[in-house]
C-alpha cells in the first residue's frame, strides 16, 4: 500500500466517522423516516447556502459546512465514498496542482488554486441540485445527479482546501479536524 492509498483509507474511515456522528446528532432529531429525511435536507440546504455564499478562506471556516453538506448529500443519495473514491479525489487534486504549477505565471488569466477551482464546481453543482436559495431549471432526476456531482466535487474540494489551509501554530491536537485531514493528505503528497 503506497502513501496515497494509506491516505485514502484514512479519509474513508474519517468520513465514515463524520457520517456516524451526523447520524447520531443533527440527523437524529426525529425517529420517523420522513422527519429524518427532512432533517437531512434541512442540514443540506442550510450548509449548501453557507458554502455557496462563503468566500474561500485560509482559516478553515468552510470545513464544518462542507462536512455537513457531504454527509447530508451522501445520506440523501445513499452514497458511501469508499477507498477508491477518496484515492481518486487525492490523485485528482495532486494532478491538478501539478498542472496549475506548470501553467504558472504564463497563463492569460489567474488560474486560481485547486481549492478555488473545485469550489467553483461544487458551488455550481449545489445550485443546479436545487439545494441553495438560487433557482434551478433541472428536473428531479437531474437534480439528483447534480447533487451526486456536488459530492464528487466536494470530496476534491475538501482535499484541496485542507492542503491550502495553513496549519495553526502549536502542537497538533487529537481532533480529526481540517488540520488532521491536511496532515493525512500532505504525507501522500510528499510521497507522490
Amino acid at each position: 500500500m503506497d502513501a496515497e492509498e494509506r491516505a485514502a483509507v484514512e479519509l474513508r474511515d474519517w468520513f465514515n466517522g463524520v457520517l456516524s456522528l451526523c447520524d447520531r446528532t443533527v440527523f437524529a432529531v426525529a425517529t420517523r423516516e420522513p422527519h429524518r429525511q427532512a432533517a437531512v435536507l434541512s442540514v443540506l440546504t442550510r450548509n449548501a447556502k453557507a458554502i455557496v455564499h462563503g468566500e474561500l478562506d485560509r482559516g478553515g471556516a468552510l470545513y464544518t459546512p462542507l462536512c455537513f453538506v457531504l454527509a447530508a448529500a451522501c445520506r440523501r443519495l445513499d452514497l458511501a465514498p469508499g477507498e477508491r473514491e477518496w484515492l481518486s479525489a487525492i490523485k485528482n487534486v495532486h494532478r491538478l496542482e501539478g498542472q496549475l504549477r506548470e501553467v504558472g505565471e504564463a497563463s492569460a488569466w489567474p488560474v486560481g488554486t485547486p481549492a478555488s477551482i473545485f469550489k467553483q464546481h461544487l458551488d455550481e453543482a449545489l445550485v443546479n441540485a436545487g439545494v441553495t436559495d438560487r433557482p434551478t431549471i433541472l428536473d428531479h432526476h437531474n437534480r439528483q445527479l447534480a447533487l451526486g456531482l456536488a459530492a464528487n466535487w466536494g470530496l476534491r474540494f475538501l482535499v484541496a482546501y485542507a492542503m491550502e489551509t495553513p496549519s495553526r501554530p502549536g502542537a497538533p491536537t487529537e481532533a480529526q479536524d481540517l488540520a488532521w485531514v491536511r496532515r493525512a493528505v500532505a504525507q501522500a503528497g510528499k510521497a507522490a
Binding site: L77, S88, N92, Q144, G148, L149, A151, N152
Partner: peptide, 13 residues
C-alpha cells in the same frame, strides 16, 4: 451538463 451521466453512482469519479 449530464451528458454521459445516467446514475448517481456514476457521479463519483
Amino acid at each position: 451538463y449530464f451528458n454521459g451521466l445516467r446514475s448517481i453512482a456514476q457521479c463519483l469519479d
